[in-house]
Each structure stands twice: as C-alpha cells, then as structure tokens.
Simulated scan of single mutants.
Amino acid sequence: MSKILAIGNYNDAERKALEAQFDCLVLAREDEVAGLPQEVRETVTAVGYKGHHGFGAEQMDLLPTLGLIANYGVGYDAIDTRTASARGIKVTNTPDVLNDDVADLAIALWLMQGRELEQAATWTRAGNWASGGTYGLARKLSGGKVGVVGLGRIGREIADRLAAFKCEVHYHSRSEKETPGWTYHADPVDLAAAVDVLFVALVGGPETEGYVSKEVIAALGSRGVIVNISRGSTVDEAAMLDALEAGELAGAGLDVFVNEPDIDPRFFDLPNVVIQPHVGSATVETRAAMAALQRDNLQAFLTGADLLTPVN
C-alpha cells in the first residue's frame, strides 16, 4: 500500500487533516527520514514537504519509490527540482492562494519603514508624547517612484497596490509585461537608479542568488529603501548591511534573511530597518488554503489525476 510521508512543522490542524485524509506518517525534520525502517521508506510514494532545509538527492535516495514532492509554499528552492526531474519525481507548490497576504505585508513594511511606525509607537508607549512634545517628521510615501524586481504573481499584486498609492511604478522582469503604463527596465541597475524604493519579489534559488547586487544597491542610493518579501538569498545581504551602516542606503523592510532564523545581529542595531520573522503568508486563512492545496496535490497523485500546480 502506498504511503505518504509528511515532513515539517505542521500545526495540529494540518497534521490531523493529513492523517485523516491519508495513510500518513508525519516527521518534524528532514534528518528523521534516515531513521525510518527500510521497509517503511520503501513504501513511501509521495512526500508532503513543509521544510526550509534542503531536500535533495540524499533524501530522495532514502525513498526509492518516491514519485511526488508536494511543497507547502509557493517557493520551492529548498527542493532540488533538477534531481527530482531526472528521477521522474514530480514537484508541486502552492501558488496564488498566498499572493494577497504577501503583497499586503510588502506594503506594510514600506509604510512602517517610511513613516517610522514602529519607532513612533515605541516612543509613545514610553510616555514621550506627554513629556517630550510631538514626534519628529517621517517620509512621504504616496506618489513616490517605486520599483518591483520580479513582476510575477506576487510582484504584480505589489505593483497594483502601489499604483493605488498614486506611485510611479517601474519594474524589472525577464521580459516586458502588459501593464497600465508602468515603466519596464531590462537591467536591475537601471531600475534601481530610477526609483527610491525597491520591492524584491523574485523566486529563490541559485539563479537569483544575490540578484539585488552591490551595484543595484549603490544605484538605489542614499535615499533608497529595499523591501524584500522573496528570499534572503535574492539580495546581497552583506552589501546591503554595509550600505545601511554607512548611510549609503536609507533603510529596509525585510521579511526574509540569509541563514534565517539565525539572522545577522547587525540588523538589530539599525533603527531604519523594519524586521519581520518570515510571516508573509502567516494568516489563518491563507495557511489553511496552502495546506488544503498541498493535500489536493497529494490526492491527485494518489488517484492518478492531473496535478493541480506542478513545477517540473
């Protein structure tokens, strides 16, 4: 009998739903797969994956009858899709259902950073309004020049929201898109030079590692702000930190980091940086929809139906 193996930090509701729908074993971490008896591993034909560590050839070797890795999340850069494809293993993800939440958070980071909302709240809670007068001036955001790196599903939602703020929208993507008059830049350095705020909405993985490079950051300049809701790897984090500390970049709003959750402590000393713990899709409604789409892909695989959201 075919079995499904689920790996990751599933909450109680997600775990119960998996166990109720499938003959399913749930593990907390990738490294626990090797501890399963061989006779169990040989029955696993599909994996529901909710991890951020690598799932590659080593893990696939342990599951010789594996036919599907159903990822929980739109980003699947932790999965070695090239190796999976070479072995005839299909990979799916959970796109679209999280677009709104991630785009909403990008706008929230932009507003928080530019209007100094976190600092002003802390200042007020400390009693400074009554004792010290009015809080200082922040930065006007509506009507500004903004750029989006990666005009895919989420990037498009971010751009639509920025247009509602009366912003002049610029973008960089692999090819020019049909837009309502937004300005396309074939080169990310040119894009950064034309705007004051750069929203990063790229897919993760080797092809986009360090895509927002030292040169892009320099072109953005001392009034520039980076908002990143994609993956920490898409930005040259060391160059960004250097620029922030030197006053060569005005600020950042970040939901993702290199080596998260053990992020670089240099961020903690920068009051012009808004930090969030990778919560772009973290709402009750969206996480439930992501889990449901993952289960639907698993069900389709088991019944021989077309996969809903294949990526290879």
Score class of each variant (00 low, 15 high):
D31T: 09
Y49K: 02
D96L: 04
Q299S: 15
W123M: 09
A243W: 10
W123Y: 06
M240I: 04
A186P: 06
C24I: 05
P180N: 10
V311T: 12
A126Y: 00
V279L: 12
A130P: 00
V227I: 15
I89K: 01
P206L: 13
T124C: 01
V203A: 13
G253E: 02
A218I: 01
E260Q: 01
T83C: 13
P206R: 13
V284F: 14
S85I: 01
Q38E: 14
G232M: 10
S173W: 01
D242H: 05
G143S: 03
A57K: 13
I4M: 10
L151C: 06
R87S: 07
V97F: 04
D160Y: 07
K145P: 00
V216M: 11
V258W: 11
G210M: 06
F199S: 14
F55S: 05
D255N: 05
A34C: 01
A20N: 14
A13V: 12
D61T: 14
E176V: 09
H53R: 15
F301Y: 15
R125V: 00
V47K: 01
T124A: 13
R231D: 12
G280T: 09
T43Q: 15
Y171R: 09
G147F: 10
F257P: 10
T134A: 14
I229R: 01
V169Q: 07
T65F: 00
G304A: 07
K50D: 09
R87E: 03
S85G: 03
T81P: 01
Y184E: 07
L249Q: 05
R87C: 09
Q119S: 08
S233P: 00
T94V: 07
L66C: 07
T309N: 11
A300V: 09
F165T: 02
S230V: 04
S233Q: 11
V227M: 03
E58D: 14
D236Y: 07
F267C: 03
A46I: 08
A6I: 05
E42T: 15
V225W: 05
A6D: 06
E176D: 09
T309D: 09
